[in-house]
Structures are given as C-alpha cells and as structure tokens.
Design a protein around this nucleic acid. Structure first.
Lengths: 204, 204
DNA sequence: GTCTATATTCCGATAGAC
DNA sequence: GTCTATCGGAATATAGAC
C-alpha cells in the first residue's frame, strides 16, 4: 500500500463503475471487461481489489439493497399519525427511486435469484419493524377512524404503488403511449396521487 | 422431415423446457445444456430446431409476453360497469399469475433490457385499447359516481397492485415473515381485497 | 432426427514485468 | 498498484456418424 489516496480513489472508481453495470445488466449480464472500461482501467485491477466478480457483486448489491429501503423504518416507527406516515412514505419512496430508477428492477430481480440466506445477510433476519405500524392500523380500525383492512395487505399495497412503476416503466409507456418526459411528469404527480389513493381507500 | 409427429413432439418438448429455464433464470442466466437436460435430449438438437439460443429465447419470450396480458383487453373493452370491470380485472390477473408466478419478474426484467423496438414487435405499436376505459372513467367522474382521478394513474394502480406481489415475493416474505403457504393464502385473499381497495378509493 | 465429438468464442482469473 | 499477456474453463455452436 504505497499510495493510500490513490488506492481509495481507484477502489471507489471500481465500485462506482460496477454499480452502474451491475444495476443495468444484472449479475449474469454484467462483464468484468465492461466494468473495467467504465472505470477507465484494466480488468486485472478489479481482481486485485475484489478477488472475484462474485465478491464485487456482493459488495455492490449489499450497498444498493440498503438504499432500496430508504428511511422507511424511521417513518414507519415514528409517532406521526397514520395518514401522515402514508404521505411521507410515498413521497420519500418515489423521490428516492426517481433518483435511482433502475434500482427496483435490479433488487427485485436479484432477490428472486439469490438464495433466501443471502437476503437475510443483506437485510437481517427480523424484517422491517413493522409491528408498530400494524398495531397503529389496528388501533385506528378499532377507533372507527379507518375501515377494516388486513395491515399486511395495506403495507404491500403501499409498496406496490410506489415501486412497481419503476420496474414496469416500459410496459406502462407502451400501454399509455407516454414518452420519457411525460412519464417523469406522471411520476411527479404520483407522489400526491398515490397517497390520496391509499388514504381515500381506508378512510371511513 | 421423416416423422411429423415426432418432430412436433420434440419441438414442443424443447419449447416447454426452454420456457421453464428462461422464465426462471432469464436470458443471461439460462444454459442451453440445462434446457436440453430438462427436455431429455441432447444440446445439438436445440440448435437443429432453433439455430441459436437467441432465436429460441425470442420464440419463448413472445409467447410468454402474450400470456402476460391475459384477457385484460376483453375485460377492459367489455360494456360492463366500471366496478365490475375492476373486480374481473383483479381476479383474472391474480389468478393467471398465480399459475405462473415467475412470469412477471421474467417479463418485466427482459422488457427493461430489450430495446423498445422489441416491445413493439411483441405487443404491437398501439398499446392496449385503453381509450374506452379512460372514457368510461371520465364519464363516471362527470356523473359524480366516482371521485376525480387521472385514469392513467388508476390503470397503473390496478396493474401495480396485481403484478407487484409476484415480483416482490421474496421482499414481502422478508418484511411480513410469511412462509410460502402463508403467502399463497395471502394472495388468494388479495383477489377480493385489492378490488375492494381500489373501489373504496374511487367511490364517492 | 438424433447422437457424440469437437470446434469456436467468450470470459473470469492469474502470472509476471514494471 | 497497474499494466500486458495468457491460461483454463465454460458455453454456444457445428461436423459428421448413425
């Protein structure tokens, strides 16, 4: 280790290039040569820093998987009222994913291929601390503020409405004949529309 | 072509095996050897019938892409009332995909990798005949039967709520700690819950 | 049409000079 | 640390016997 700054910088360049290629092409479709090219260096260096494609992938995937669950935990565990939580959840999720539109497809796809054990390694064994949210939903049902609904269904609905449009972008554009500009305007509106859609559905 | 029936049968065996492998592993992850094994024959035969992996893939993909838009067109274009259409749409979509749970991930993933031109080749240039549905929604808003909503948002919401759970199965199971049996019960309930969720949201 | 054997290409990984 | 050159294996594809 002669040159710490240069090491750091090189490692960072590799990770950045690897992120781009892996997210775009997936583990199977990605090529070490491609990553090296984008990082502006030779293939051999990738192995010098990360030993193997698999190890490099794992590093990138874990980093991206963390990004994929934004401050959702914080929002869900906060003591805000239910409707406020829903509004924040939708806004944060769609905003974050708009900055990383390929992320959902990448994560969902690899999660379906990697073994279950890998998921646990990435996100931990416990799942999201969703019990508090579940309790809150049950409470509001009890109090007669919202209609009866299975809290798990509600959570999946929230995730689906936020995440799906990114994975389904080509399909949506084909159905609705939107071009890219239209689509991103459409997604901007969605930040409000989806929250409204959910709240209108459960409000009594 | 000495033996028509045997040809048919062999070609069919290949396509069936190829479907399984491609849908499960994707284009990049699939191996011709794997397909040959599942079809109970030799690798060379695959090339004899389909020339190349790419050609075989294309055949399979086009077939599956057609399956992915079930009788949705029929339902949407029918003269049924809006709420009935929504109920039918949800029920048909979730039922069909439950029979092919890997299909959504496969189609969404490959659609994101293939060029736009390929989508047009598979599904045609026009998109779904969704205008009639849009008109119907606008009508019901006009009449004051449902709340104002962008019909495109409604369509995307319907698709999202039906399709996402299949692509997001590992994530959902991690969050909710459901095992497979729980999950499929959960999806069975969803056929009713999702329709209710949508209708409750837009009904005035 | 179906098989075995082999050619060809591609790609991850390593050796070794600097 | 970084490069060039190359190995070795894997996967697609073809040749040729039956």
């Amino acid at each position: 280790m002669v040159n710490m700054e240069k090491d750091q910088s090189t490692e960072q360049k590799i990770l950045e290039a690897a992120r781009e290629v892996f997210v775009e092409k997936g583990m199977d479709g990605a090529r070490m040569q491609d990553i090296a090219d984008r990082a502006g260096m030779n293939k051999a260096l990738l192995h010098y820093y990360f030993r193997s494609k698999e190890k490099l992938f794992e590093k990138v995937f874990i980093e991206q998987a963390a990004q994929f669950l934004p401050q959702v935990g914080d929002i869900i565990m906060s003591d805000a009222p239910l409707f406020t939580k829903i509004e924040r959840f939708v806004d944060v999720y769609i905003t974050k994913l708009t900055e990383n539109p390929y992320l959902p497809m990448f994560i969902l796809n690899e999660l379906n291929k990697q073994p279950q054990s890998f998921i646990l390694k990435v996100w931990g064994e416990r799942g999201l601390p969703v019990e508090m949210f579940v309790t809150q939903v049950k409470d509001e049902i009890q109090k007669g503020i919202i209609k009866p609904i299975d809290p798990r269904q509600l959570v999946v609905n929230m995730a689906a409405l936020c995440i799906f449009p990114f994975a389904g972008k080509p399909m949506i554009q084909w159905v609705t004949q939107m071009n890219d500009e239209d689509f991103w305007k459409f997604m901007e509106q969605r930040k409000i529309e989806v929250a409204k859609f959910i709240i209108d559905s459960i409000r009594k």
